[in-house]
C-alpha cells in the first residue's frame, strides 16, 4: 500500500471537490466546510453520476444527476436509498494531500 501525494489542501475549494484520475477510474476528493478531506469513487451507486460535481454539505455530497445523498465518511447512500461509493483513505499532512493507492506514481 502506497501513499501518493496528489496535491495540496488549498487545491480543493471548501465545500468543493476535485478529481484524481487513475487507471481504474476517477476518484473524487471532497473538502468539507471544516477542512476535512474525504475520498470516494467518483461514481454514484445509483446511475454512476459524477459525485465530484455535487453540492457538498456537512459530511455529505448530493449527486448532481438524481440527488442521491452520499455519506462522505462511509461512502454509503443515505437511507432510504442504498448503495456504496466505496471510500478510500486520504490524509492531510502539512497541507499536503496523500491518497491511498495500490501502486503508481502521480503525474501532475
Amino acid at each position: 500500500m502506497n501513499w501518493i501525494q496528489v496535491g495540496n489542501l488549498e487545491d480543493i475549494p471548501r465545500q468543493g471537490s476535485r478529481v484524481v484520475k487513475t487507471a481504474t477510474g476517477e476518484i473524487a476528493l471532497f473538502r468539507s466546510v471544516d477542512d476535512q478531506v474525504f475520498a470516494l469513487n467518483n461514481r454514484c451507486p445509483h446511475k454512476g453520476g459524477p459525485l465530484s460535481q455535487g453540492i457538498v454539505h456537512g459530511k455529505r455530497v448530493t449527486c448532481p444527476l438524481h440527488s442521491w445523498v452520499i455519506d462522505l465518511e462511509s461512502g454509503e447512500a443515505i437511507s432510504p436509498d442504498s448503495g456504496c461509493a466505496h471510500r478510500l483513505e486520504v490524509r492531510v499532512a502539512h497541507g499536503e494531500l496523500f491518497l491511498e493507492a495500490e501502486a503508481g506514481v502521480c503525474k501532475a
Partner: peptide, 11 residues
C-alpha cells in the same frame, strides 16, 4: 479553472 481540470492523474 479548478472546476475544469483534474487534481492529479495516477498512472
Amino acid at each position: 479553472a479548478h472546476e475544469f481540470t483534474a487534481l492529479a492523474t495516477i498512472v
